[in-house]
Amino acid sequence: MDNYQLVLTEHLNHYGYLFGGTLLKWVDETAYIQARLEHPGKRFVTVGMEKVSYKQSVELGSILKFEVNRQARGNTSVTYEVSVKLASHPEKLTIFTTQVTFVCVDKNGDKSAITD
């Protein structure tokens, strides 16, 4: 699944670049959307991100492309790789990559099996 985000003024830090926490929020949300699309009606919560390492600053007006691919699925969890690229750059430079793991939970917040 691919998703896009436009970097606006409210997404910038005090140096005028994309705030890292905003990027993490978008990565988490994009991976969550993929989990819900693949497993309709299931509830998921984020349990971790593999590694957080920013490869370059992102400026105002940049268009980011989020590419999400499932990496693993267990009985109660699913992991996605999320790559973030500068879609507005001719070479589509990758600026961030991580793996996001979710666990499926029931209405009480207890682990639940993922069944399709």
Rank of each mutant, 00 (worst) to 15 (best):
N75L: 08
L24M: 15
V84W: 00
Y15R: 11
S77Q: 09
H39E: 08
V58M: 03
T46A: 14
N75K: 14
V78L: 08
T79F: 04
V68G: 01
E50N: 15
T76Y: 06
D106K: 07
E59G: 05
Y15L: 14
L12F: 09
V78G: 00
A35Q: 01
L18T: 00
N3S: 13
Q5P: 02
T97E: 10
T22G: 05
I114W: 05
R73W: 08
E59L: 11
Q99P: 03
S77D: 03
Q71H: 10
R73G: 12
G74S: 14
S77T: 14
Q71C: 09
Y32C: 10
K25E: 12
D116L: 10
L37A: 03
G21H: 09
G74A: 10
Q99W: 06
K92Y: 07
N13I: 06
G48F: 06
I95T: 08
N13W: 13
E29N: 13
E67K: 15
S77A: 05
T101W: 12
R36A: 12
Q34S: 07
I33S: 09
K25R: 09
L23W: 00
G41R: 06
S57D: 07
V105M: 06
D116M: 11
V58R: 00
V45Y: 15
A35T: 08
K65L: 15
S62W: 03
S112K: 12
G41I: 07
K25Y: 05
D106H: 05
G20H: 11
D110G: 08
S112G: 04
L86N: 05
V47Q: 13
R73F: 07
R43D: 13
N13C: 10
E38V: 05
Y32D: 08
E29C: 03
Y4K: 12
S57P: 06
E91I: 05
E91N: 15
N13P: 01
Y15F: 15
R73K: 13
L60A: 10
T94E: 15
V47I: 15
K25F: 04
L24Q: 10
G20V: 02
R70L: 09
I63A: 05
T76P: 06
A113S: 13
K25P: 01
V47S: 09
G109P: 03
T97Q: 12
E29F: 04
L64C: 01
G21K: 12
D116C: 07
T101Q: 14
T97P: 02
V45M: 11
T79M: 11
E38Q: 15
D106N: 14
K111W: 02
G16A: 09
R70W: 02
S62D: 13
Q71W: 02
E10V: 14
T115G: 04
T76H: 08
V68H: 01
Q34I: 02
K65V: 05
I33W: 05
H39T: 12
T98R: 01
I63D: 01
L24F: 07
I63L: 15
L37P: 02
V84H: 00
N13V: 04
E81W: 03
F19D: 10
V7N: 00
